[in-house]
Amino acid sequence: MTQPNNDGDARPQAKSGAARPTKRTTARKAAPAAPARRGGGRQASASRTETVVTKGVSADALPTSPAAPPRVGMASRLAALAPSARLSVRKTYKLYIGGAFPRSESGRTYPVVDAEGAFVANVARASRKDVRDAVVAAAKAFGGWAARTPYNRGQILYRVAEMLEGRRAQFADELGGPRADAEAAVDAAVDRWVFYAGWADKYAQVVGATNPVAGPYLNLSTPEPTGVVAVLAPPAAPLLGLVSVVAPVIATGNTCVVLASSEHPLAAVTLAEVLATSDLPGGVVNVLTGQAAELGSWLASHEEVRGIDLTGADAEQAAEWEALAAANLKRVRRPDPAEDFTADPPLSRLTTFTETKTVWHPVGI
Rank of each mutant, 00 (worst) to 15 (best):
Pro178Gln: 12
Val213Ala: 14
Asp181Lys: 13
Thr210Glu: 15
Ser221Val: 13
Ala182Gly: 04
Glu165Arg: 12
Asp181Trp: 09
Arg192Cys: 10
Leu157Arg: 08
Asp191Ala: 15
Pro225Leu: 01
Pro150Phe: 14
Thr222Lys: 06
Trp199Ser: 09
Gly177Glu: 06
Pro225Glu: 01
Ala141Val: 00
Glu183Ser: 03
Ala189Val: 04
Tyr151Ile: 05
Ala185Leu: 10
Glu183Gly: 02
Leu157His: 06
Glu183Met: 05
Ala200Trp: 02
Ala185Asp: 11
Ala214Glu: 15
Ala141Glu: 00
Gly227Asn: 03
Gly177Pro: 02
Leu164Gly: 04
Pro225Trp: 00
Asn219Pro: 04
Met163Cys: 04
Val228His: 00
Val207Phe: 08
Tyr158Ala: 10
Gln170Phe: 04
Ala233Arg: 01
Gly198Asn: 11
Leu157Ser: 07
Val231His: 01
Asp173Phe: 01
Trp199Leu: 14
Leu157Gly: 09
Asn152Asp: 14
Ala214Phe: 11
Leu157Lys: 04
Leu175Glu: 00
Leu220Gln: 11
Gln170Ala: 11
Leu218Gln: 13
Gly208Lys: 05
Leu220Trp: 07
Tyr217Asn: 12
Lys202Gly: 06
Leu164His: 02
Gly166Asp: 10
Pro150Cys: 15
Trp193Gln: 07
Val229Ala: 01
Val207Tyr: 06
Pro223Thr: 10
Arg153Ile: 01
Trp193Arg: 02
Gln205Cys: 12
Leu232Asn: 14
Gly198Lys: 08
Ala214Gly: 09
Gly154Thr: 05
Ala146Ser: 13
Tyr217Phe: 15
Ala169Leu: 09
Pro234Val: 10
Glu183Arg: 03
Gly215Tyr: 14
Asn211Glu: 15
Gly198Val: 12
Pro212His: 11
Arg153Tyr: 01
Leu164Phe: 06
Glu165Asn: 14
Pro178Glu: 13
Leu218Pro: 02
Ala204Asp: 13
Pro223Val: 10
Trp193Val: 07
Tyr151Pro: 01
Asp181Pro: 06
Tyr217Ile: 08
Tyr151Val: 11
Tyr158Lys: 10
Ala147Trp: 02
Ser221Ile: 07
Val206Thr: 12
Tyr158Val: 03
Arg148Glu: 15
Ala180Pro: 06
Glu165Phe: 09
